[in-house]
């Protein structure tokens, strides 16, 4: 049986130390060892981005990094997005703009979005679409995810959070079809 190594990481501001096999993927470390199951797994080939976390503030795919490589690094997962009991504006925006359906890609999408807005507070639609192109979603068609990130950008800038033409059948569709 392979030997284990000690790894010490800061995750969402808290320190963790554990002994793991070198081959343990970072995503398995987060999920199985630390119980942070908000980070998901969707492929074997570093394509889907369900496992996206922030490594020292930069979004990366945690299935394509070994846990031992995270030693002495600072990680942020979806569980670390809230602060002082308040949702991050991106979390609010994903809900408000219907930027999620099954929720599986959502943590990774939000973390990628947070990192984007950190480096580019007023991204264009094309910039947003490119930024999230390493995160696959099968439910939403991305349109409302784009709206959510735009909305979060506005909220972070202290502006109104509503999105013109966003979710909610805002393009003249019949809203009261049931009556």
């Amino acid at each position: 049986m392979a030997t284990t190594m000690s790894v010490s990481v800061t995750v969402n501001g808290a320190e963790y130390t554990a002994d793991v096999e070198p081959r343990m993927l970072l995503v398995h470390f987060l999920r199985d060892e630390l119980g942070l199951t908000g980070t998901h797994i969707g492929c074997d080939t570093t394509h889907c981005g369900a496992c996206t976390i922030l490594l020292n503030g930069t979004p990366i795919k945690s299935c394509t990094m070994f846990a031992v490589q995270a030693d002495a690094q600072a990680l942020t997962t979806v569980e670390g997005l809230m602060s002082n009991g308040e949702l991050n504006p991106i979390q609010e925006a994903f809900k408000e703009e219907h930027g999620l359906q099954c929720g599986y890609c959502t943590p990774g999408m939000m973390l990628t979005g947070v990192a984007l807005l950190e480096s580019s507070p007023e991204p264009s639609e094309a910039e947003i679409r490119m930024a999230i192109s390493g995160n696959l979603c099968r439910c939403t068609g991305y349109q409302n995810i784009v709206h959510a990130i735009q909305s979060a950008a506005r909220a972070m800038a202290g502006n109104d959070t509503s999105v013109d033409g966003g979710a909610g059948g805002g393009n003249g569709a019949s809203e009261g079809g049931g009556e």
């Binding site: 570093t46 394509h47 981005g49 996206t52 979004p59 990366i60 795919k61 930024a131 192109s133 390493g134």
Partner: peptide
Amino acid sequence: IADPLVRNR
């Protein structure tokens, strides 16, 4: 190259 997240690594 690849996608933005892969490019970060």
